[in-house]
Nucleic acid binder design. Structure first.
Length: 273
DNA sequence: GCGCTTGTTAAAGT
DNA sequence: AACTTTAACAAGCG
């Protein structure tokens, strides 16, 4: 779930709730979730405040008045919750920031794939982790130049955070569906028009998802995401019968690049190249 | 209780 | 050597 639109939604949520109030303490259930030593993390944060937020791809950086950032990565299931009373504390709140105001920010980590740590310098961090330009910022020409070098299926290329940052397994299926491109097309085989359509689809899907605050049930009816069985969908028939929302034929489900992939063989034909 | 899962990465393969 | 592929990670959920 925490792909670019979810992280952007979390960023806005944190910015609306948590800025400019001193941090009193930090609870950490399991130090495996930290990329910074626990004692250092707590010592650095006590008495400091969150003052601003930035997002690159699926990475959230929360600036402090101590001249450093707290980096959040949400893994596959991370979430945030701001609350006041202990009885409101969500399950799996494995990291909790306690503010002096009495309010708390929980980092909900059901599967412990999530990470938090101190980052001093964002550009240095992005370079070291090989995180490319954000999917909402990348230009067609940069995307085109990168795709031209890749002799692999387009789907795993778009999932590669060192190519374009922020796209995950559900968004890539949606983007390829909207752009009418088969997930197993070789990236280097896309022509200029296809790359243009792809770039447009990326912007469209991401902006639509952000506008819906990543609430999948609010996505347009012609989105293929409604066919995924986990997505609570108002379009029950499409959901049950796994039909293409455009042509109403049965969708294909296969593994591409090791990930479960939904697509429509009719609307996303695999051209001969 | 088995098999599946959103992300990332180290290790293996070509 | 550089690029690509795969398996493993943790644990909840249906």
């Amino acid at each position: 779930m925490p792909e670019l639109p979810e992280v952007e939604t979390y960023r806005r949520y944190l910015e609306e709730t948590c800025l400019n109030q001193p941090i009193q303490d930090v609870f950490v259930e399991d130090t495996k979730l930290l990329t910074t030593d626990y004692d250092l993390l707590v010592a650095s944060l006590r008495g400091k405040q969150f003052v601003a937020t930035e997002r690159v791809g699926k990475n959230l950086f929360v600036q402090t008045d101590g001249g450093f950032y707290v980096h959040f990565h949400f893994g596959m299931t991370g979430d945030l919750a701001y609350y006041q009373f202990e009885e409101e504390r969500p399950r799996f709140s494995r990291i909790v920031f306690y503010f002096q105001s009495g309010y708390k920010l929980a980092f909900i980590c059901p599967r412990k794939f999530e990470r938090i740590g101190i980052v001093e310098n964002i550009p240095e961090y992005l370079k070291r982790k090989r995180i490319a330009e954000d999917a909402l910022a990348i230009s067609i020409s940069t995307l085109d130049a990168t795709l031209a070098k890749k002799k692999v299926f387009i789907k795993p290329v778009l999932l590669d955070q060192s190519v374009i940052a922020g796209i995950g397994n559900w968004i890539v299926d949606e983007v390829l569906f909207q752009a009418r491109i088969h997930p197993e097309r070789l990236a280097s085989s896309l022509d200029e028009s296809e790359v243009t359509h792809l770039h447009e689809a990326i912007q469209f899907v991401l902006k639509t998802a952000i506008d819906c605050e990543a609430n999948y049930a609010l996505f347009p009816e012609n989105f293929i995401i409604h066919a995924r069985e986990w997505a609570v969908s108002p379009y029950a028939e499409v959901n049950q019968h796994l039909l293409c929302p455009v042509c109403q034929q049965k969708l294909q489900i296969m593994r591409v690049g090791g990930r479960t992939t939904y697509f429509c063989a009719i609307d996303q034909p695999l051209k001969r190249t």
